[in-house]
């Protein structure tokens, strides 16, 4: 905790860092530094939302969400690229509006929650792509298979004890042995999440 504050304080006074950021974005250091201001460790709060969409041929597709998940992330104020995220979601908590679809998703046709109760994401690299935005690459593990995945996180709100990101990304489900129903249902699962962090 104290370490974080010292690092944060140091980052704020380090002229080379501020100068670099200002050059990067062509913005004033304060505006460009919104992410860095949020430096610290956070726990992903239960009031976050994990929504997903799978398109289909001629129709609304499947729109669903996950109610049960957890994880943490750390924002490195000196170097946003040294930030990290670890996220776990419990696919049993899937909601899709229609019980038969939910049972299908939980079954061994899709998530196989009996054998694989968790889906995890571990970041491997974070790259700043805008003043308030970062691209997070990492490894997604689902149904016993791991593959690279990438999400974009955009800062929504920053409080003294909390931070909120809008996170989006797409996963190709066939890579995780969940290809059932393609091509009627798209191979692409689009995630639209609001991840709220509370400081630890």
């Amino acid at each position: 905790m104290t370490g974080e504050y010292i690092r944060k304080a140091r980052s704020l006074v380090k002229p080379s860092f501020l100068g670099a950021l200002a050059l990067l974005g062509g913005l004033s250091p304060a505006a460009a530094d919104a992410l860095a201001q949020g430096a610290g460790s956070y726990r992903i709060a239960p009031n976050s939302s994990i929504r997903f969409h799978v398109g289909q041929v001629a129709g609304a597709g499947i729109n669903g969400s996950f109610g049960s998940f957890g994880g943490s992330f750390a924002i490195n104020g000196n170097d946003v690229s040294k930030s990290s995220v670890a996220f776990t979601l419990y696919p049993k908590s899937v909601r899709a509006g229609e019980p038969r679809v939910e049972d299908f998703l939980r079954s061994n046709a899709v998530f196989d929650v009996a054998e694989h109760p968790q889906i995890t994401f571990r970041s491997t690299s974070v790259r700043r792509i805008g003043p308030n935005e970062a691209a997070i690459s990492g490894v997604l593990t689902a149904r016993g298979r791991s593959g690279p995945a990438k999400f974009d996180a955009r800062l929504r709100q920053l409080g003294s004890r909390s931070i909120s990101f809008h996170v989006t990304g797409s996963i190709y489900r066939t890579a995780y042995g969940m290809g059932v129903g393609a091509p009627i249902y798209s191979n692409v699962v689009q995630f639209d999440m609001v991840l709220n962090g509370t400081r630890r």
């Binding site: 299908f104 079954s107 061994n108 046709a109 059932v180 129903g181 009627i184």
Partner: peptide, 10 residues
Amino acid sequence: DMALQFELIQ
């Protein structure tokens, strides 16, 4: 097997 069932129904 629900995946098989889905494909068979198609």
